[in-house]
Design a protein around this nucleic acid. Structure first.
Length: 255
DNA sequence: ATGGCGGTTTTAAACCGA
């Protein structure tokens, strides 16, 4: 079983790349963020033709999430029932006995922005809802764009980023709170090369200079952690023409 | 300090992302 997450920064623009990537990486489950599509514009037929079922929750211009799966999905939940939110940032589904939560955690913009307390409240509500979900689903995977680099080794230049949004202590504390509820960062289960990131700024040759952050994650409960045999960032599509600024993250689960 | 880039919309300039 292979599962993946990818912030595509507009599925309208990136659909050909998603289909190409799935041909080369026929994962069982793919969580997408920033589809930026209303549900009536979602490319269901193209994704079905690629062999995937799909559930989605979108809106105009911003946000939007989807789960693509080779296996049937049930118990779909859109957004956090404990957190009324006009922004479409969560979709959850049960697939083959595993609960998948696909999340596009708010960016926060800056510590001074009103979007920053929104991000922290959003994370707090996510934690509360996940406690309920975990009580029902011992096998749970939380995949998505967390917009949090958990540690300094997930940041290309920790000194330059110190205290900024995406690395600030309250955000990292929220990440650790997710870990404390039994969710493990699958990437850190394994020995990894240094300077592995999942997002690079489009500007100033960010990707070529590897000025990145690791902000896309796959967190797993104990039972899934024990089945996890690999977790990698796939930089290949970041090198394609007109790429998303994020790269996919893939975890492998033994049967 | 600002703007870089790329996507979006109200198809031009403004917004948002990270």
């Amino acid at each position: 079983m292979k599962i993946a997450t990818w912030n595509v920064n507009s599925l309208k623009v990136r659909l050909p790349q998603v289909l190409k990537w799935l041909e080369e990486n026929p994962v069982d489950v793919l969580c997408l963020q920033e589809t930026k599509l209303t549900d009536d514009k979602f490319p269901v037929a193209e994704i079905a033709a690629a062999g995937y079922m799909v559930e989605f929750s979108g809106q105009k211009t911003y946000n939007g999430v989807a789960i693509l799966s080779r296996h049937p999905m049930s118990d779909i939940v859109k957004n956090n029932p404990l957190f009324p939110d006009e922004q479409q940032r969560i979709i959850a589904a049960t697939i083959e006995g595993v609960r998948y939560v696909c999340a596009y955690i708010p960016n926060g913009q800056s510590l001074e922005s009103e979007k920053y307390p929104y991000k922290l409240s959003w994370l707090s509500a996510l934690h509360a809802w996940l406690q309920q979900e975990l009580a029902q689903h011992p096998r749970l995977a939380l995949l998505g764009d967390y917009n949090i680099a958990p540690e300094d080794r997930d940041v290309h230049d920790p000194a330059a980023w110190q205290g900024q949004v995406l690395v600030s202590e309250p955000e990292r504390e929220a990440f650790r709170k997710l870990q404390a509820m039994g969710l493990t960062d699958s990437f850190r289960l394994f020995e990894q090369p240094e300077k592995i990131y999942s997002w690079w700024d489009y500007r100033q040759m960010g990707f070529r200079l590897n000025r990145g952050l690791r902000i896309d994650h796959i967190l797993l409960t104990q039972e899934l952690k024990e089945r996890c045999t690999a977790c990698v960032v796939d930089k290949v599509p970041r090198k394609w023409e007109q790429p998303s600024d994020h790269a996919p993250v893939i975890a492998t689960l033994a049967d």
